[in-house]
Amino acid sequence: MSWLGRLYDSTIGKKAIMAVTGVILFAFIIGHLAGNLQILIPDGGARIDAYGRFLHESPVLLWGSRLVLLASVFLHILTSVQLALRNRRARPQPYEFREWREASYASRTMMISGPLIALFVVYHLGHFTTGHFHGSFEPLKVHDNMISGLQVWWASAAYVAAMILLGTHVYHGGWSLFQSLGISHPRYTPLLKKGAAVVAVLITLGYVLIPATIWMGLVR
């Protein structure tokens, strides 16, 4: 078997793939947040619309990153599903009585938060990229689409819920990916865990700010 096959076949190799694709997705989450926070600039949407047009005027950048993201999402999901099935097979009979001491809520629910986030992404793409789930979608009118889309209360609520899930996912994934890639140090790993928590909270707050402010009418 080739080294690549061996790597992919192993549990540790798969975890490494999850970690690397996780880093890419994490980078996207940060970039996406930075881009979309421009909605908060009170200029009637000029800046964020310009940002949208900029992305669409450079198809290499747009499709290049979409391709990388798509591949990452695909690999991230594929390996996680394979690992999850493996993990489930590893304990065919559950305990009658089970207590958790160390495993955080976030770590135990990665396979719940993950699929829910994936579902949300599908909805989100239909909402703001293709407009299928949007009542009054107009291509390239980023500002108007966001305002009209998020003024619907249940859409806003879904966004907030999804972002909380994203936070827990990013918290556990954020430090755990270092472990999977073999980076651990008694001095820095505890800091890393705290850092992951801070970043997760900031990301969640950042994203939640958008639907919250729109729904409350602070951004128009």
Binding site: K14, N87, A90, E102, A103, M110
Partner: peptide, 13 residues
């Protein structure tokens, strides 16, 4: 892996 153990999800248990 051949023995059928699961993978690590870094829970710390």
């Amino acid at each position: 892996d051949r023995e059928g153990f699961g993978a690590c999800t870094n829970t710390g248990e």
